[in-house]
């Protein structure tokens, strides 16, 4: 209501005095201002989003002494890959054993992706294509789980897995990660299945394909872009996860993930130099950036376009 009553006078006023012809009208002034402001904002946004990551990489390849003397340098005067050697070498060889952390993260993330997709693909197909009792309730339940904060689950899951003696095992962490991702995966894949025309599956059925055969031969290949990008999303979630890795795995260094290992590098007993810390940050971030660039492209490609022709 207030919006209307405010806007009416201003528009009628401009009717009476059209902006054209007035050299310094408010419109031209504002247009000019916002054209410049937009460019400034884009540059500032690029600085705050890209520069920190450039700086992370920069510190990781500069010699420590150089960094301590001049922390404000914007490009490297000398190169030193020593930090990468120190961070990757096993503990027995005087390094930090980050290679084994990366392997653990890879096992965890890979296991979570496989298990989540194995559950979510049939589940999302069922929710989008088949009519069964409770279909709606299931969707609501999954959406609620998406909003659900993991800190509320931290205590009971910690207690439960301690009690059954599985805390500290990678399998327990994978189970927890599945529960964090599967509901959202079903939700995302369901949305994609709904964009695939049912008529394709009906044609397959007419040609004598069974329901599971249709799902396997028609729906699954068509949903591949969504499945791949969903799998990459799950990978990112599992690779980045920190709270449950900290709660479940912190006691055994051999089971540390990259996120957990990185966070432990700065605690009292293992105070590593800044350059080594930044090298670890780079190694933690690079797989995610790669996965992100791949999945962004996949998401924008639609494979169904033109599938229904003829």
């Amino acid at each position: 209501m207030t919006v209307l009553s405010e806007s009416i006078p201003s528009t009628t006023e401009h009717h009476a005095h059209p902006p054209r012809g007035h050299g310094f009208s408010r419109d031209r002034l504002e247009t000019g201002f916002f054209t410049i402001a937009r460019r400034v904002v884009i540059v500032l946004l690029l600085i705050i989003t890209v520069f920190p990551f450039y700086y992370m990489f920069l510190l990781s390849i500069r010699p420590l002494g150089d960094v301590l003397r001049n922390p404000g340098a914007l490009w490297p005067a000398e190169f030193d890959i020593g930090p990468y050697v120190e961070i990757l070498l096993p503990v027995t060889d005087g390094g930090q054993g980050f290679g084994s952390f990366m392997l653990n993260s890879l096992i965890l993330a890979g296991g979570t992706v496989a298990a989540t997709l194995l559950l979510a693909i049939p589940g999302s197909y069922a929710v989008s294509r088949l009519r069964f009792f409770g279909r709606r309730q299931v969707s609501v339940l999954f959406l609620a789980v998406y909003l659900f904060p993991s800190i509320l689950l931290a205590v009971p899951l910690f207690v439960f897995f301690t009690r059954i003696g599985l805390r500290g095992s990678l399998i327990a962490v994978i189970i927890v990660y599945i529960s964090q991702t599967v509901a959202v995966s079903v939700y995302m894949l369901r949305n994609y299945f709904e964009t695939i025309p049912v008529s394709l599956e009906e044609s397959a059925a007419l040609d004598g394909c069974s329901r599971l055969g249709t799902m396997w031969r028609i729906s699954l290949p068509l949903a591949m872009p969504a499945i791949v990008s969903n799998g990459l999303w799950v990978f990112m979630v599992a690779w980045n996860e920190f709270l449950f890795a900290l709660l479940f795995l912190v006691e055994d260094r051999d089971r540390w993930t990259v996120s957990l290992g990185l966070s432990q590098l700065t605690t009292g007993s293992l105070d590593v130099p800044t350059t080594v810390l930044m090298a670890a940050c780079v190694l933690t971030t690079i797989p995610i950036i790669l996965v992100f660039f791949v999945s962004e492209r996949l998401l924008t490609e639609g494979l169904t376009s033109g599938a229904e022709k003829g």
């Binding site: 929710v127 009519r131 069964f132 279909r135 999954f142 789980v145 529960s179 509901a183």
Partner: peptide, 24 residues
Amino acid sequence: EARTGIALISPTVVIVLVVVIAPL
């Protein structure tokens, strides 16, 4: 159809019930 639907969705529902709802 309903049987197939329930069969396909139940593993996910079980995981969510066991690892999210029950702990809560």
